[in-house]
Structures are given as structure tokens and as C-alpha cells.
């Protein structure tokens, strides 16, 4: 059993302690926007926010989490898909197949929240998600666009 805070709701889930958060989100909670890509925290398709920090959920055992930690998935990023990052993604027509994009968007949103004016080097260092379709330059352009708009950040 675990008690989790996901997208603002507290949810009890009956799973083994070592179940990765990813599979709790996908199979117990039923939110499938968060993807399985590698299971070894390499690709980032499973990225969610835990207290605002981009975290790879495929290697995070559910037992390591408490109900006080706020988990946000792609479905909880904004009520209507209108987070500035999501809007920029549409404006730049970023996704190709789209499978990695939930993770990309979550990583980008966390990056800009922590660092509203990232340099190119900051973006390259933080955005380590794998995209096999090769959307990297569009991802970068969308992030820079949002940064230029100054809509995100703690500052």
C-alpha cells in the first residue's frame, strides 16, 4: 500500500513496495500520458514532477515517496493544455511521433520553473531526454520562446 499525491489528489494504491512510480501511474492510476521507454532512467519518457523537480519515474520505487510529496504528471501540468510550454509546443509544431513529448514537456517545464532564462548550455545540460524522431532543435526553440516571454519561474 502507498499513499500518493498525484495531480492534486491523494490516492491510495495497493502495490508492492518496489513497484516503480511509472507503473503505478500508468496501471493503477490509469494515467497513460507518462510513457515507458527504457526502464533504466536513460530516455526520460517517464518524466514527472516531484515537488517541482523533473524526475524519471521508471526507477523511482513507490516506497520512496510520501503523501506529502506532490507528484505532477503531464495530465496535471495544466487544466486545459494551456501551460506556456504546451502552447509553445503547438506554436512550434514540435512533436513528430509524440511518444517522448510528455517527458520532454515535463522536463522543459521544470527547467524553466527553476531557471527562467536558461542559456543554450543550460538547456543542453538539462534536456537529456531521448527523441528518436529528432525534434531537438524544435524543442530548444520552443523553450527559448517561453523563456523570452518570461512567463515562468520562481523569481
Amino acid at each position: 500500500m502507498a499513499k500518493l499525491s498525484i495531480n492534486g489528489k491523494t490516492i491510495d494504491v495497493a502495490v508492492e513496495d518496489d513497484t516503480p512510480l511509472l507503473w503505478v501511474i500508468r496501471e493503477q492510476i490509469g494515467l497513460t500520458g507518462t510513457k515507458y521507454g527504457c526502464g533504466v532512467a536513460q530516455c526520460g519518457a517517464c518524466t514527472v514532477h516531484i515537488d517541482g523537480v523533473a524526475t524519471r519515474s521508471c526507477t523511482m520505487p513507490v516506497s520512496a515517496l510520501t503523501a506529502e510529496q506532490k507528484i505532477v504528471t503531464i495530465e496535471g501540468l495544466s487544466p486545459d493544455g494551456n501551460h506556456p510550454i504546451q502552447k509553445a509546443w503547438i506554436e512550434h509544431d514540435v512533436p513528430q511521433c509524440g511518444f517522448c513529448q510528455s517527458g520532454m514537456i515535463m522536463a522543459a517545464a521544470a527547467l524553466l520553473q527553476a531557471n527562467p532564462k536558461p542559456s543554450d548550455a543550460d538547456i543542453a545540460a538539462e534536456m537529456t531526454n531521448i527523441c528518436r524522431c529528432g525534434t531537438y532543435n524544435r524543442v530548444k526553440a520552443a523553450i527559448k520562446d517561453v523563456a523570452a516571454g518570461g512567463q515562468l519561474g520562481r523569481g
Partner: peptide
């Protein structure tokens, strides 16, 4: 023109085979 299939790829709503 922009793609017709982008919006749901930004919200997690798009259903892939795995989903």
C-alpha cells in the same frame, strides 16, 4: 501548414498502442 495531430501529443491524451 502545421500538423493536424499535435494537440494531444502535448497533453498526454494521445493513445498509443502501449496505452
Amino acid at each position: 501548414l502545421k500538423r493536424l495531430d499535435t494537440a494531444d501529443k502535448t497533453t498526454g491524451k494521445k493513445v498509443y498502442g502501449m496505452d
